[in-house]
Design a protein around this nucleic acid. Structure first.
Length: 563
RNA sequence: UGGGGUGUAGCCAAGCGGUAAGGCAGCGGACUUUGGAUCCGCCAUCGGAGGUUCGAAUCCUCCCACCCCAGCCA
């Protein structure tokens, strides 16, 4: 009721002001403008949630627009994946799916208009020459010798550029602004370049393509966007954005820049992600270690948890690195409430209950989700030979370790109290291979009628009833919080975590897990949240991806004991 | 170096001249058939230095640090 509701951010302030002054007649219309040259990642999710979220909150609209002006890198495959990811995240662009490439004709006409106004010219300088003429941060540029061509000549040249008369790179159309501007982007920026490349949507209809700066503002304008939200690195482009729209006297959206998301222990650059894929450091764009939406989805993340994450991290202008635990916390919070509990032993250690009958099997009741009684209960089979986790036994238990040890009594979840009586070791290696325990029949179900206390509760499976599953444990893709923090002479890849994937092939799962659907999520009790892999699972042998581990205070304690 | 930005706790982030929200992490404690969950409590004087004001994280001045810009990428 009186929660502080921390939705306040500087973009909302701007919108609130605009609403107050009736700047856009009370409209709020945003857009998410991806370039189809790669897969979407969690950083894009921030932008998607922001743009679609703002539109929803202000009863406005948000378009999905592909910013596809570069035929060299863009592909249909990316378009499809992007649409799928936006939908999966839970957003709907309804009938407002647009492409900058649909505006090529209009854009060209705008270019002609600029030429006619004497505000743009065809320049024959080479790329290198343009760079030289541009000057430097401290030295003003020089005007191009082609800068003062007549309108007629420019019109003729532009038309012939469009007609394909000139080679790639031989000429460009430039805005005529100010070669002495302290903002390099205003030193007669390129508006059109010649690229005799076929475009994934327009085919060979065009051989000249508009640049980002010319395309973006006008696309926004054409669509009636009110608030054009982009990332910080475009702050320098805003004067150009404004210049073009002012010269053309068209609808003028407000560009607003925010800080892109950086997540600790991973990278967000599309170029680098592509490199990881191409160099096979990961299995693909959807490798569960990738920060891509497809990777997170395969890892077991839910759309809700990602939206929640985007919500809590806020929006501001300060560069920052959000800690990954923040994201992990969001999934945990959701999966704790929604996920069915199940028992799986990752690294099995055989336990024989010596006083339990050889051929007996009991069906014990287990709660499916203590957070949600409506999820009911299930039966788990118990018998003489079980598996427990190797980690749950210590021959010489360290301080504060209250699991199984020689002579110690613990509870098997939903089953019985057992006491360890014998430790069987491999004669050669000395490795513990089997435990002999005695159970207390009075503690059936895990209760203790005499009020006897036990400090540990272990998960387990019945050896005869369990079946083998593969489990993949994931860790940070990079060892460093900031992967681009590197020694001289190396790059971010030197920070790749060699242990980011651990595959366990003979894990033992309780029988209720048979037939688990690909994509379905579970909590493996005491271990974490896992999701059936959608690519590599088979009916005989399911593969589980660990989405995130449970909070583990023992891990914390044992770490401090180590030191 | 010219220009454009940013600096509030370990990590995010509110704050808009009236005496530092919230989340995560951390620490302590309660409860517990997941060392899970839940619940309580603790945890900052705002990059620095001056100034204006009864009063400053908020206004002014200077300084420092970091980010972005010299693609016919976006």
């Amino acid at each position: 009721m009186n929660k502080p509701e921390t939705k306040s951010n500087f973009i909302r302030d701007i919108i609130d002001d605009d609403l107050k002054t009736n700047k856009y007649k009370g409209r709020v219309h945003t857009r998410f403008p991806p370039e189809p040259n790669g897969y979407l990642h969690i950083g894009h999710a921030k932008s998607i949630c922001l743009n679609f979220g703002l539109a929803a909150d202000y009863k406005g609209l948000c378009n999905l627009r592909f910013d596809d002006t570069n035929p060299e890198t863009e592909e249909m495959e990316y378009v499809e994946s992007i649409k799928g990811d936006v939908r999966w995240l839970g957003f709907d662009w309804e009938d407002r799916l647009y492409h900058a490439s649909d505006y090529f004709e209009q854009l060209y006409n705008f270019a002609v208009e600029l030429v006619k106004k004497g505000k743009a010219y065809v320049c024959d300088l080479s790329m290198d020459e343009i760079r030289e003429y541009r000057g430097t941060l401290t030295k003003p540029g020089k005007e191009s010798p082609y800068r003062n061509r007549s309108v007629e000549e420019n019109l003729d040249l532009l038309e012939r550029m469009k007609a394909g008369e000139f080679e790639d790179g031989s000429r460009v159309l430039r805005a005529k602004i100010d070669m002495a501007s302290s903002n390099l982007l205003m030193r007669d920026p390129t508006l059109y370049r010649i690229r005799k490349k076929s475009h994934y949507r327009t085919g060979d209809a065009w051989c000249i393509y508009p640049t980002y700066d010319f395309t973006h503002c006008l696309s926004d304008s054409i669509e009636g966007i009110t608030h054009s939200i982009c990332t910080l690195e475009f702050e320098n482009n805003r004067p150009l954005y404004d210049w073009i729209l002012d010269e053309l006297k068209v609808h003028h959206p407000q560009q607003i820049e925010f800080a892109r998301l950086n997540l600790s222990h991973t990278i967000m650059s599309k170029r680098r992600l592509l490199e990881l894929v191409e160099e096979k450091h990961v299995s693909g764009w959807d490798d569960p270690r990738m920060p891509t939406l497809s990777g997170l989805r395969r890892r077991g993340y839910t759309p809700e948890s990602i939206r929640q994450f985007c919500d809590i991290i806020g929006v501001a202008k300060a560069n920052s690195i959000v800690d990954l635990v923040q994201l992990e916390n969001c999934v945990r919070e959701e999966l704790n409430k929604t996920t069915q509990r199940v028992m799986v032993v990752l690294r099995p250690l055989k336990v024989v209950i010596v006083n339990y009958p050889e051929d007996k099997t009991e069906e014990l009741d287990a709660v499916n989700n203590p957070e949600d009684p409506s999820m009911g209960t299930r039966k788990v089979p118990f018998s003489r030979v079980l598996y427990i986790e190797q980690d749950d036994f210590h021959e010489e238990p360290p301080k504060k370790f209250f699991r199984l040890a020689p002579g110690r009594e613990v509870r098997l979840r939903y089953a019985y109290f057992i006491t360890c009586e014998d430790v069987i070791k491999d004669k050669k290696t000395g490795e513990v291979v089997e435990l002999h325990c005695r159970y207390d029949p009075a503690t059936r179900g895990g209760g203790s009628p005499d009020g006897r206390r036990v400090k540990g509760t272990l998960h387990w499976v019945s050896a005869n009833h369990a079946f083998d599953v593969e489990v993949r444990l994931y860790d940070h893709l990079f060892t460093k919080r900031d992967p681009s923090d590197v020694e001289e002479g190396t790059d971010y890849k030197s920070n790749l975590n060699p242990k980011s994937l651990e595959t366990l092939t003979s894990c033992k799962a309780e029988p209720s897990l048979k037939g688990a659907e690909p994509g379905s999520r579970y909590q493996f009790e005491r271990l974490g949240y896992f999701c059936v892999d959608t690519s590599d699972s088979t009916a005989e042998k399911p593969v589980f991806n660990r989405t995130v581990s449970l909070r583990d205070t023992w891990a914390k304690i044992s770490k401090t004991i180590d030191k």
